[in-house]
């Protein structure tokens, strides 16, 4: 064979250094993003708290920031969000868990093959579409059962948010159950257990922490969900537990203000950052809890 002349590598080494620096810069963009979020939220929030006391904000029961007399008690928005969380959880947690059990323990392979992609499609439907569905399908059904229900109400939005988060609960819980080793199941089947007993006494306990984590993530998602509640839940901040009334959530408020012409620097502009900070803090804490549960209680089989 003829001897081949190779080029020297020195140019390549220089390229290599440039490439690794550029990639490093890409890597820290995510850190800048987090700092960006925290800074942009806090900056306006600090200004907001120069005008309104934190205590009034967190404990006040009236939210009328744009009217006279302006009141800045965030509790009505928190209550509204809470109602959505309650009703979405009633839908998404049991149904999501049930379908996870079915897919992981009961479903024949063929059924899995058809059902899983459908759940994935369901997860890929934009929230605006669920919002439309809530407004035009769920609300009329609710009104036909409860004629007193408001056109915009927490129940309708809550159900739609619940439907939207089913695939999340289902797929995360299913992953957890699939990770339970078969030897545990076979032991129980060997003792004559039914599938029901294996699922409830072996698989669910073994996957319990991950299932809890998926529940918390679904709740966090419901708290942050915006378009459904903006479309179907109404824009009346109030402290009520009646799901048939029009309410407003934290996210719904931010959208309402953003749609209007609130001038930069006004108190109205600052309120959305204060509410945003609260929203960010709550979802952040829930996400951390979820992750900690997974990490702490991860079973080593």
């Amino acid at each position: 064979m003829k001897k081949i002349d190779f080029k020297s590598k020195s140019g390549m080494q220089r390229n290599e250094k440039i490439v690794s620096s550029v990639l490093f810069l890409f890597g820290i963009i995510s850190i800048f993003t987090t700092f960006g979020i925290v800074f942009s939220l806090f900056e306006e929030t600090v200004l907001f708290f120069k005008e309104v006391s934190i205590l009034d904000f967190l404990t006040g029961k009236e939210w009328t920031p744009l009217f006279e007399p302006a009141r800045f008690g965030v509790l009505p928005l928190v209550f509204g969000t809470f109602l959505i969380v309650i009703f979405s959880s009633i839908i998404s947690l049991p149904i999501g868990l049930g379908s996870a059990i079915y897919l992981s323990e009961y479903a024949p392979k063929k059924a899995r093959k058809i059902l899983k992609p459908i759940l994935e499609i369901l997860a890929g439907v934009p929230s605006i579409v669920y919002g439309y569905f809530a407004l035009t399908t769920i609300t009329p059904i609710i009104k036909s059962i409860f004629p007193d229900a408001s056109v915009y109400n927490a129940l309708s939005a809550g159900i739609a948010v619940g439907i939207m988060t089913i695939p999340m609960v289902s797929s995360l819980s299913e992953d957890a159950m699939m990770a339970v080793p078969n030897s545990l199941r076979q032991g129980a089947y060997g003792l004559g257990s039914t599938k029901f007993e294996v699922a409830t006494k072996i698989v669910i306990p073994a996957a319990f922490s991950s299932i809890m984590a998926s529940f918390i993530l679904a709740i966090s998602r419901a708290i942050g969900e915006t378009m459904i509640v903006a479309m179907a839940a109404g824009s009346t901040p109030k402290m009520t537990l009646n799901p048939l009334e029009s309410i407003q959530t934290m996210t719904g408020y931010i959208v309402q203000i953003s749609l209007g012409d609130v001038p930069y620097g006004s108190i109205g502009y600052k309120t959305i950052f204060a509410v945003g900070t609260l929203l960010f803090t709550i979802t952040f804490i829930l996400n951390i809890i979820s992750r900690t549960i997974v990490r702490k209680f991860r079973r080593v089989y």
Binding site: S30, T33, T34, G36, I37, F39, S40, L41, E43, E44, L217, S220, R221, I223, G224, E225, T226, T251, I254, V255, S258, I272, F273, G276, L279, F280, T283, F284, N287
Partner: peptide, 15 residues
């Protein structure tokens, strides 16, 4: 970041 609500990104974008 993957768990931050999308509306919060909107506020980041605005600021």
């Amino acid at each position: 970041l993957a768990g931050v609500p999308s509306i919060i990104y909107g506020m980041l974008g605005l600021a």
